[in-house]
């Protein structure tokens, strides 16, 4: 069995699909470069990213699949995990070799894994839309630092751009070390030189605007007064707002 070694990007994966169809080597094992352990018994093929090959495969996918499924595949690519890459690879190969609409076969483990992973990514994206709390900085930019389970910033951009069209904002992924900045015109990808104190999602008091502490206090007050103690249900509360997200939430500080 051959090992296909790719770099763990969408382009790499699509190129791998292309290479497989050019050679049709039968069953292969797909691995990412950073997880790969050299092995004496298998023949390794390096996949060199080629944007032309990748875009041909992508075109093919767009022709065969509905918009919903293309979105799912996009989400799966952002999940950045080995198991999902393998399922994606096999799914693509199966899709192009069989005439049937295999994407509806939820009995197939690859299809099910992809639809479930896409759902996880969408859920994380939705949680970010809900749990991001902007803080106004002294120079009037609304900032929030996040560290989501999946690389969801590309999915978030449109939502925040439409919604906060009249204010400058930054959403920064502290784990993946990049973010997006909106300057009231368009969105740019940025990399911040993070000094001490900016490592967490909450800004230090010195960098906040004058109004910021009043509104975060008012929000904390509101959160308390809207609770009905007679109905206390901590288990449900934690199920909806898992503890790992509490660090973002102004009302939980």
């Amino acid at each position: 069995m051959q090992i296909y070694l790719f770099d763990g990007t969408t382009e790499g994966l699509l190129t791998a699909v292309f290479e497989w169809f050019e050679r049709k080597p039968g069953k292969i094992s797909l691995q990412t470069k950073d997880k790969h352990q050299p092995d004496a018994f298998y023949d390794v093929m390096f996949i060199h990213n080629d944007s032309q090959k990748a875009s041909r495969v992508w075109k093919g996918l767009v022709q065969k699949l509905s918009k919903d499924w293309i979105r799912r595949l996009h989400c799966c690519c952002l999940a950045e995990n080995e198991e999902t890459w393998i399922a994606l690879f096999q799914f693509c190969c199966n899709l192009f070799t069989t005439p049937a609409a295999i994407q509806y076969n939820y009995g197939d483990p690859n299809v099910l894994l992809l639809s479930q992973t896409a759902k996880k990514v969408e859920r994380e994206k939705h949680r970010m839309e809900a749990f991001i709390r902007f803080q106004e900085t002294a120079d009037g930019i609304y900032y929030c630092g996040i560290d989501p389970d999946f690389n969801v910033i590309p999915l978030l951009q449109r939502h925040f751009q439409n919604r906060y069209a009249d204010q400058q904002w930054i959403i920064y992924d502290l784990k993946r070390k990049y973010g997006i900045f909106y300057n009231k015109q368009d969105v740019q990808e940025i990399q911040l030189d993070l000094k001490m104190g900016l490592r967490s999602s909450i800004l230090p008091a010195t960098q906040q605007s004058a109004q910021e502490s009043l509104y975060s206090l008012l929000w904390q007050d509101y959160f308390k007064s809207t609770n009905i103690p007679a109905r206390k249900n901590t288990a449900l509360h934690i199920r909806h707002v898992p503890k790992r997200y509490w660090k973002y939430l102004t009302e939980k500080q």
């Binding site: 809900a130 919604r163 809207t226 609770n227 249900n233 288990a235 449900l236 707002v241």
Partner: peptide, 17 residues
């Protein structure tokens, strides 16, 4: 300012869930 989200967004949950 603002753009509605067709399915709505729950921004947080009170302690009663």
């Amino acid at each position: 300012l603002g753009d509605s989200h067709s399915s709505g967004i729950c921004h947080t949950y009170t302690e009663d869930g």
